[in-house]
Design a protein around this nucleic acid. Structure first.
Lengths: 251, 251
DNA sequence: AAACGGTGTTTGATATTATCGAACAATGAG
DNA sequence: CTCATTGTTCGATAATATCAAACACCGTTT
């Protein structure tokens, strides 16, 4: 491990967590570094555009170059761009927030969303992780993993309870995953948050592997069971359409 | 300057430029580094999620963490999120591609776009720079800069000719900027690319400073002068609406 | 106006680390 | 099985990053 690089990245992370720009001394205090060490690291990061210093008050913030590289990372994933029109079509048709989650290693990350026009919406943040055992998208990907992969994941996550509806029993979760695999979609029935319900379906790549999922979510006042029933076919169709763009042969 | 940090960032940039994952040896060759040096740097970057190694073939690519931080940078700018619904409304209404460009230091960067449904569209890349003298967004921000700021920028850019319509004469450009300021919008009339026309308007922050711009662009076959005339009021209104969300008092 | 406190910035000695040479492990091709 | 290439490891040391000390700058207080 290269300590200097670790320190530089720690500086980026401090700035990421901070809601406002920070000065050399403040960053040094937070990371227990000498001021001149911090200054040298910042100078290097600044020369590459990773941070910017406000000439007015000398404080530092994250630079646009990170956005450029980050956007490049995202474009590389290909999925968000191809999926975007499909998400927009769903929102247009059903007026509820639609999410796209991608599976990476052992994490599921929200990489896009198109919000519905309603004032009451599901809150989520692009770039943040999706929980696997108690979200529609999480369960719909889990259901299509190989048994080995599923075991690995189930051995590594905690079935934390968020609401009385959260599935915290492993056997019950597995049973539900079997059902989800059979029906081709999953429902989050107030499992992560009381008052929030969604329906989700998995997206497959050209090898037929579940690599992502989409969901339509909303408050239970609108997301009634009747409404959910109406959404099943469209969300499955949309997930399949996206899968097709990824080269997946129709199942 | 901290050499190790420079090297680590150079690795990220090599991976950014590469269309496919790269191995340790390849990265070392491109950066003239020793393999074990490169390996140490990659190991550190990987531990922080900045790169990932494909266990199948040992090759490295940019990691999702960069996307997370990059998205955070972007959210910090506030603009893209608040502007997005306005852009979507314009696209819905006029069926042409809409762009959002933000001004940072002496650069203008595309930070969002909503593409119209038409097959023939203006090509642009999020995160890339917008030219200042020959794009609608560029000119519409230039027109509202302070004289000092404008002089600095005009002294630093080259009025490169892209088409016979590109303004390459400084006096002519200044004259047009005066006109743009008066009318509150700008037009790119096949100045950056033959066959491409757009109308743009500036966005102001709470201090009344032009910090961004939006544009509607399309091929001249659809973007006729009649069409342009129809778009002026809506794009100015939209830019003003976005400015209002940023706290700008109506001018 | 001067003093004070705090921050950003600079410089050079040296403590510490990053580098690299050598070697090994792993893998795919022949 | 052999060979070539790449990824990975390890430790000596060359080179760098670190930090102590000091300075420049700026806003606040007296």
């Amino acid at each position: 491990m290269v300590q200097s690089v670790e320190r530089a990245i720690s500086i980026l992370e401090v700035l990421e967590r901070s809601s406002e720009p920070l000065g050399v001394t403040e960053i040094s205090n937070r990371l227990a570094l000498h001021k001149s060490t911090t200054f040298g690291l910042l100078h290097t990061l600044e020369s590459k555009g990773f941070v910017n210093q406000d000439p007015e008050n000398g404080k530092y913030k994250l630079g646009l170059r990170l956005f450029e590289i980050g956007e490049n990372v995202h474009k590389r994933m290909n999925l968000r761009y191809q999926a975007r029109p499909f998400l927009q079509k769903l929102v247009k048709e059903f007026n509820e927030t639609v999410h796209l989650v991608v599976k990476t290693d052992n994490e599921y990350v929200y990489i896009d969303k198109v919000e519905g026009p309603q004032a009451i919406r599901m809150y989520s943040q692009i770039g943040k992780r999706a929980l696997m055992h108690c979200t529609g998208v999480g369960k719909s990907i889990l259901a299509f993993l190989s048994e080995d992969e599923l075991e690995d994941i189930l051995n590594s996550i905690e079935l934390t309870e968020f609401t009385p509806n959260t599935i915290t029993n492993l056997t019950q979760l597995k049973d539900q995953l079997v059902k989800i695999k059979k029906q081709g979609y999953s429902i989050d029935d107030e499992e992560i948050e009381i008052g929030l319900r969604c329906v989700a379906a998995p997206i497959f790549n050209h090898n037929g592997e579940a690599i992502a999922a989409i969901s339509i979510a909303g408050p239970t006042t609108r997301m009634t069971y009747e409404r959910i029933a109406e959404l099943i076919v469209p969300i499955k169709e949309t997930a399949l359409a996206i899968s097709s763009t990824l080269g997946c042969k129709r199942r």
